[in-house]
Design a protein around this nucleic acid. Structure first.
Lengths: 337, 337
DNA sequence: TTGACCGGTGCCTGCGTATTCACTCAACTT
DNA sequence: AAGTTGAGTGAATACGCAGGCACCGGTCAA
């Protein structure tokens, strides 16, 4: 059996209160007592038990990330940023993976009710209005990442604007028939990006053509996969007439799209979305989302709220940045990559 | 203030014991009492509090992953597998990120002492013998992923063999001067892969040339980055004589290497390591590690041990698989990608 | 000398739950 | 009829720790 605070107290000849103080740097403890306690603790391999501390202090020092898909570039980067901040602040990190098979709302509420963490980071969680309203009642610090709601702190990127910029850059190059390589439309970012795409169309007085919004067939990860991108691009390239350029809903899909172009030997300019690290090395033009920064900042924001529950709700919206590389420079020519 | 078990008990006209039983499906509770309790709980938004449950039951139902680098393809895939298993079993997931700035051993022990989780998954944690010995004393379920030690359950891939196969395949193609695009040698997988590389050299009676083991200059993430791969490949391509082929220590580095070849216009066959999803779409030959499976299996293994602490220690070693794609087919020609 | 003050310390209770044990009451046995 | 079961229940305690409060001894100023 692992040692408890009582064992340490007894062996060190002090009360448990003193042991507790030593481990919490709280109040004053004489150097002598402190050293003795630490020595005994070291000897017996003691350290306060997280759960007991949590219960007694009503603090878990834990932030929980609630997220639907874990194996995903966007999340991985956000996670990196979150962790950067968390280790600065000495907080624990838990991850709750929403299962797509069960009711999302129910799962989210269940997590909040258990009160495992002091603060929650909802990453890419999209709910409808009534659900958000219910969540407010829990009165728990929640920060949204990649989503936006007036009742919660949020950190997001303007997806419509990103798509708008991407599409616009292609129209400006003189392409009229610009396809959008899409993904599952149940994904909110996709819906927003389609909005941005349409907005650009409108600005250039080009009628919206439903047939130019294409997605793949495999809908694993909502269609944000290389495979789905490959499939979609094959469809695009076999259209008649072939679209002149393509805006992809994500870099990952763009990778598959590039492969499809190689395999078929037909090339059109494409632009991705995200600016994952690979994009630079693939010469992929894209829309940059500061994913890591978003994770970092959202975490900071969340911790701020945990420490000050009454502060005003803040909405942080990053502007997506257009990054031009070689994948949009070519024109009917083979990609030099 | 959130409701407690007492509030529910009082309002439902039963004792707290009964409420507890309802939420734990333990023993027998009359249907009538059960329904009443659930109704009241629903009404008051009650759910047992994780920390109190944990303290009282001495079970946290939590698995903790201990890992040095979070933003990393290998880890992301492993994590996906872990999560797949965990959600099947209804376990919580925590992540502890080892900081490179502090003493690893100390951090690991600290984590174990707190007893936050019931089982630990050490991913890519490499310690020396005396450290592993110390960890045994904690007598806590630990499963190693991407590492191997006789005292712990482990799930790993034979890195030496993987590198051996990669190098061998290049030698068999007739190349003699095969460079190894390496990374930080403090990384154990790197050391093992160098061993495999040397082993292949030996088999083909080619003397080992230290100068052919090249790494980049940026050592962020131990050198497992696109950038480091790019830098290293530039070095390789400017050597005189230029190596005839190259074995890369990871696919990510290989991506950078491919870019370097494009930028310089000099191409040599290369082979990567990992088989990340992208590799297929970049035509990158590589050594496949079943990362997701490893995560899944390791988790299963860990949970087995949590339920049966006395079972025999098991070492699972996956055999890496050689995947040939276009990046090794070319010969002094431009990559068709 | 007295009283205020302060660094240190221990006792005790509370945190919200699981669990043991004894108990009740009705159905069932012989 | 008395004894035997067993499902269902509640009181009490344990879990390991934090924190409030009281207390103790010494210092310093009045």
């Amino acid at each position: 059996m692992p040692a408890t605070i009582y064992d340490i107290a007894k062996k060190a000849g002090v009360s448990i209160a003193t042991v507790s103080r030593v481990f919490n740097n709280s109040a004053k403890v004489s150097d002598k007592a402190k050293k003795k306690v630490l020595a005994v603790a070291e000897e017996m391999g003691y350290h306060p038990q997280a759960f007991a501390q949590g219960l007694a202090s009503r603090k878990s020092n834990t932030v929980m990330i609630v997220v639907p898909v874990i194996s995903n570039y966007f999340f991985m980067e956000v996670l990196g940023g979150v962790q950067d901040k968390l280790s600065q602040m000495n907080y624990e990190l838990s991850i709750f993976n929403i299962s797509p098979n069960k009711d999302i709302q129910e799962q989210v509420e269940h997590v909040l009710k258990r009160r495992w963490a002091e603060g929650y980071l909802f990453v890419s969680i999209h709910l409808d209005e009534s659900c958000w309203a219910k969540l407010q009642k829990y009165n728990v610090p929640i920060t949204l990442v990649d989503e936006h709601h007036e009742a919660f702190d949020s950190v997001s990127v303007d997806n419509a604007q990103g798509a708008y910029r991407a599409a616009k850059s292609l129209f400006e190059e003189g392409y009229d028939r610009v396809a959008m390589l899409s993904a599952l439309e149940s994904s909110k970012p996709i819906r927003d990006r389609i909005i941005g795409y349409k907005q650009a169309l409108k600005e250039f007085d080009i009628p919206f053509d439903e047939k130019l919004v294409i997605k793949g067939d495999t809908m694993y990860r909502d269609g944000f996969t290389e495979r789905a991108g490959y499939e979609a691009m094959i469809k695009i390239l076999t259209m008649d007439p072939t679209p002149e350029a393509c805006f992809c809903a994500s870099d990952i899909q763009a990778v598959g799209a590039l492969k499809a172009m190689q395999d078929t030997g037909k090339y059109i300019p494409i632009i991705g979305y995200d600016d994952i690290e690979l994009a630079e090395y693939m010469g992929l033009s894209t829309i940059r989302q500061p994913m890591r920064d978003m994770g970092f900042f959202a975490t900071q924001n969340l911790i701020d709220r945990m420490n000050n529950p009454d502060k005003a709700v803040s909405q942080t919206i990053y502007s997506p940045e257009l990054i031009i590389r070689s994948s949009t420079e070519l024109n009917g020519k083979k990609l030099d990559a």
